[in-house]
Amino acid sequence: MHNRDGFVDITDVVCPITFVKAKIAMEEMESGKILEVKMNDGEPIQNVPRSFKDEGHKVIQVVKNEDGTYSVFIEKDGL
């Protein structure tokens, strides 16, 4: 598991709230800090990391959890 400065679980919401919730969590972080976002397989993993890329944040690690979800570690303003 990667070190992290913040965490948000978006497995309890569906599109389009997934990215909205993740984005709000990212807004509370400082530049350079790492946010862990826990998300479901399917549309969230296909879209949320890409949306972060479009906003200039860098995915640094993707970990597959035992329950089938993913933990994506994202560095704020890393791009």
Partner: peptide, 10 residues
């Protein structure tokens, strides 16, 4: 490549 693993899962 930083071997982050994203492409594998998508």
């Amino acid at each position: 490549c930083s071997l982050c693993g994203l492409c594998e899962v998508i």
